[in-house]
Design a protein around this nucleic acid. Structure first.
Lengths: 203, 203, 203, 203
DNA sequence: GATGAATGAGTCTTCATTCAT
DNA sequence: AATGAATGAAGACTCATTCAT
């Protein structure tokens, strides 16, 4: 039946249009959630007609998948860039601080993309797979980069995973929850300390 | 809306019926997500008619709110119970291990309730509020209990929050992601070590 | 996902409602064709809401399938009934005349159901299958009935098929085309004569 | 609508392009039906842009009308050619056999064009009219040709119509339905016999 | 209290047709 | 003449909620 062909835009204008749709979708998904955003809104936000969306994406979920690709890239690219700049000797404490600052900034930008992605991962195999691979790749990359600068803890995979989770949680806390019985500077200090301690435990 | 009165069931049979609806909703929300579960399914799973659901709940979201109440209770009650049993002197390492084991068990039961809840928190003020308060109360309670058994780290609020986040992440990792490049026993060891180290840092 | 359950109505009122929907669909499909009839129109014509249609049918095509079932039943039932009444000795000429009269009447009622069905058979496997089986069963039944009254031509299957086709064409001609350069009484006479001749050719 | 002028192409290249579009449309309509074929597919199959289609045709239905013109021409031209070659004395049996062979061949080529056309005739006045006239003209022409070779049955119009219908049905049966309880050689024999008998009945 | 049939607004998606280039 | 990206109206189907019984 529907052999609507999805064109991978090569023209500059088309690329730009596709980008605008993804961006619009991403923004709305984050603000209101996937299921509370309809395609008409996305199209309107992107400044295009509803029909054209389906020239670039197979369906609504396809927009979402592209959106989380953008989100994860936005998260990892600056991290990798930062870590490539590092040269020994390293002040690990300082480095983690910088990483956290960077992540917090990303979180402010990407808003609630992460939770939305996690939630989608329940019911959607493609999202789950993407997310799982993303986590793995990121962790591996970080382990590599750490090795490159002489940080070689025992159980590096596990530690990196734990540390990334802690940082992730911290960012969320800072960006969203704003529990007023906590001091976020203090919390950050504690996270940094814990991560540094963990990574210092040489094998 | 209208003047549909939501009755708080006093009769035993009614209480039981309401409980069954919440349980059915909880189960299905976890399995398939809030938006992929419809009220007819919930009613069927609960063994009641679709109409009766609206005698006990104002709307679908109301079921969800009750469901997450059940989820959080299921999470915290066993924890509180366990911690009340503790008497000094404490083997903190062992205690954390036990806590993790307990959480993992809860996670296996409650499945993906947590992510679903987080995702709903975006678009729904009531959910967000509930969740925020829940986290705060739990953390405070834990701090209290810790004090009671003589564990008094510096920045207790922040540390408890961080530790709970780590344990939460660990559980998720164990229950869902199954990254095969990681050893979960090792990961657990590392989490326990980090938490113990953190909590041992007396003020 | 959608496990919308199609209920086979047992209640009198429900059966009546399902019947009304099929009838409305049948009428509109015949008048305007399958693709020019939308579900809202069917619902309106049946005097029900659009939603309720999907309680009784899985989709639009399901209505169509039921409609053609009704059409074919309407076609064959009176034929079978008539043939059962026959007792030897037979006036074959008279019988064929009666059959044609009956079919013409059915065609006036069912309008263009037949062509619509044939057209649908192209693109839809279920329709094709149903139609093919229907033709076979009808032909076999007719052969049987003929044997029962002592009409035993050579190649009965083929002849019955040919004869039914001729009668079908004749009916269509009479009901729809109204070519004014032809005399339909004459045409009928000729069809009857040809069929009688064919069937008289004993094996 | 508008003032979109449909140009009747005079240029060789344009004529060729229009022909390609009709051919593509015809092919796809037959394969998948009118409503399951979209203009983009037709354009692609024809190797032209979607836009150019509307330079040669007012709308989608216009392509269809041209396509059935092509279909009917493909059907009648070889028939007329064959009948012109005939000289008395005639072996009517043999002639009908040849005609059937020719029609079957046409049917294999044109696939399901006929049913599609019939179905469209319901909802579209232009199609109905075209088809009605086509049938009439063909029948008249056949009667003429028959007279030319000395075949002059009583009621020639009616008989030709009936005979053409029988042959049409036979072809469809052979090409599409493939009922395996029938022998198509036998069926063909019977059709030929019936037609010959009918035409031999001189007035 | 209980049922489940009924409602109809809302959603994703398609596609004939147009138009800027 | 030609392109193919863009439009937007229309349609099939879903589902939270209501209400007659």
């Amino acid at each position: 039946m529907g052999n609507a062909e999805i064109r991978e835009p090569k023209q500059k204008r088309s690329i730009e249009k596709k980008r605008r749709i993804v961006e619009a979708g991403f923004k709305l998904f984050c603000e209101k959630g996937y299921y509370n955003t309809n395609t008409a809104e996305i199209a309107k936000e992107a400044g295009v007609s509803t029909g054209i969306v389906y020239n670039y994406f197979t369906d609504k979920k396809d927009i979402f998948l592209d959106a989380i690709r953008q989100y994860t890239d936005g998260l990892t690219k600056p991290m990798y860039a930062m870590m490539k700049e590092i040269h020994t000797p390293i002040d690990l404490t300082n480095l983690i601080h910088q990483l956290i600052a960077m992540f917090v900034k990303s979180h402010y930008i990407t808003k609630s993309a992460h939770e939305e992605m996690m939630a989608m991962a329940h019911s959607d195999e493609a999202v789950r797979e993407y997310f799982c691979e993303f986590e793995m790749n990121t962790a591996k990359k970080v382990v590599e980069l750490m090795e490159g600068v002489g940080i070689t803890p025992s159980n590096p995979n596990e530690k990196v995973h734990i540390a990334m989770g802690m940082i992730e949680n911290l960012c969320h806390e800072i960006v969203y929850h704003q529990h007023d019985y906590m001091n976020y500077d203090t919390m950050t200090e504690e996270v940094v300390r814990a991560v540094v301690l963990m990574m210092s435990n040489e094998s």
